[in-house]
Design a protein around this nucleic acid. Structure first.
Lengths: 114, 114
DNA sequence: CAGTATCCAAATAGATACTG
DNA sequence: CAGTATCTATTTGGATACTG
């Protein structure tokens, strides 16, 4: 019980929590981050083929969002054809234990299969 | 690197992740859980006054959703007026380390204030 | 290969008023 | 105290087609 009896700090924590879950709560974001964590830096189509069911537009939007949030970096390799590489920032990598925890919690309490 | 080179297991993990974040990604859920974690079991209006900016309807919907997910239990104490008490299930309590991790991550990477 | 442009459907959240 | 009923606004996600 960390903040017992202190509504102000509860409020401040609420803002932090909401800023964090505004990212992890997007439908595809955790999975995209997890893909980068486990499969390493990769291109647009690599991610698309690994993340089952995502469309071009949604993947594009999601990656942009993750860049804006500072979790992912995009770098363009000027070849022909152009290659683009997505990888995690330190902030993105620091989510690993949280994502693993989520996975474990999900298995324990929501079951292995849907 | 746990699932390297195995798209099938990555896919299975994706489903687990999405079931977990379908809960934690709702705007108010993590904060409601955190309130129950730090302030203990409490009534509807207690939660409402602690969670800044939430409306009756949204709180009501959220609590129902958390019950359906098996994270929160609601019990009615038949007094006059009726008292209702919300508390966490074991599954709800097991989210504590994850929520703390999220909070810590948020402070480190998103800053203390907005 | 790596996306954009449109257009559309569904899901969430919020304001306001009312109830036992 | 503990909600429900409406109605609306906003945010996401998705299908399809096209581009350098």
């Amino acid at each position: 019980m960390t903040g017992k009896g202190n509504p102000t700090s509860l409020y401040a924590r609420g803002e932090s929590l909401q800023r964090a879950t505004a990212i992890l709560g997007k439908k595809w974001h955790p999975l995209l981050l997890y893909t980068l964590l486990t499969e390493g830096p990769q291109g647009f189509n690599d991610m698309k083929s690994r993340v089952d069911g995502i469309s071009d537009k949604v993947l594009s939007d999601a990656l942009e969002d993750l860049q804006d949030a500072g979790l992912v970096v995009r770098d363009v390799v000027e070849d022909k054809p152009v290659r683009v590489n997505y990888s995690l920032t330190a902030a993105g990598e620091d989510l690993e234990p949280i994502i693993e925890g989520l996975l474990e919690w999900s298995h324990e309490h929501l079951g292995e299969d849907g």
